[in-house]
């Protein structure tokens, strides 16, 4: 089948989701883990009796126990409590920056692809430069210059995540622009806004959302990396990257302090990647038609 370049038209979102997950069973695992993490983060107080900020000088660097499932840190704070409250920070910053990048990036891509010409050339040149420059370094410099506040971190991560969304939106827009049904729209006298919003955007939205789930993983990773370097949300607010950073300072005698948040990050990113990968397979028409 050469003509079915567009994803087939789903009857409803739910139906589509179920079909997606039947194609790729590992995405179920990703979704379940992710939902679990979100539930635990949102209802964090229900999952621990400890205050993540409460220090206890009598229990510094104590190992895992019944009282403290994953032990305590150098201030005697409960690692599990810090972990699940830290998930809030990771998820909030990750989601906020990804949503911003998604909105800005795909708008740029859509408009650049549709209007082409000089606007396209300039925008894509900017995107290419942004994409090629090491994103972590760029994020580092922005956060260091503006100060390590939540909005600044969100801004820095969002900025470095815009180019992939611009690209993922632009390529199919250009392809669709040449498509005969879009030419038909033009010859029927539809406005640009109508063509873009009614006839192009819905056909590329799925790809953008898939990209979003993959870049959410990246945003969480970047936030943790910044915190690990020491440019994250300021202590004592728990963040996963910050926990690994302080755990790393005690790695010779209290390895779990670094290992537990490391695994937490790994699991969440892995879950997001599983989910995004499964979704991508389901959305990718080339793979779907063979399956």
């Amino acid at each position: 089948m050469t003509h079915a370049v567009l994803p087939g038209a789903p009857r409803g979102a739910l139906h589509a989701m179920i079909r997606v997950f039947n194609v790729n069973k590992t995405s179920w695992a990703g979704l379940v883990i992710l939902l679990a993490v979100i539930v635990i983060a949102v209802f964090a107080p229900l999952f621990t009796a400890h205050d993540p900020l409460a220090q206890d000088v009598t229990r510094q660097l104590s190992g895992p126990s019944m009282e403290h499932l994953f032990g305590t840190d150098e201030y005697g704070r409960d690692t599990w409590a810090r972990l699940i409250y830290g998930a809030r920070v990771s998820l909030a910053i990750g989601i906020a920056s990804t949503v911003i990048a998604m909105l800005v990036g795909s708008s740029i891509g859509l408009l650049a692809g549709w209007y082409g010409g000089r606007f396209d050339a300039v925008m894509m040149q900017v995107m290419d430069v942004l994409l090629a420059f090491p994103s972590l370094i760029l994020g580092l410099v922005i956060v260091a210059m503006l100060g390590a506040s939540t909005p600044n971190i969100v801004f820095a991560i969002a900025l470095t995540s815009i180019p992939p969304f611009a690209r993922i939106a632009r390529a199919p827009t250009i392809a669709l622009k040449e498509r005969e049904y879009v030419e038909a729209c033009r010859s029927l006298g539809y406005s640009d806004a109508r063509i873009l919003l009614v006839h192009i955007l819905p056909n590329i939205a799925a790809e953008i959302v898939v990209m979003g789930s993959l870049w959410l993983a990246n945003a969480i990773r970047t936030e943790a990396s910044l915190a690990f370097i020491g440019l994250g949300i300021k202590p004592p607010t728990p963040t996963w990257g910050g926990m690994i950073r302080s755990g790393f300072e005690n790695i010779l005698d209290s390895a779990w302090l670094a290992v537990v948040p490391s695994l937490a990050i790994l699991i969440v990113i892995f879950a997001l990647n599983l989910l995004g990968d499964g979704l991508r397979d389901a959305v990718d028409p080339k793979l779907k038609n063979e399956a």
Partner: peptide, 9 residues
Amino acid sequence: DPYASLNPR
């Protein structure tokens, strides 16, 4: 191309 001439959705 009758396949490309209609919006699939």
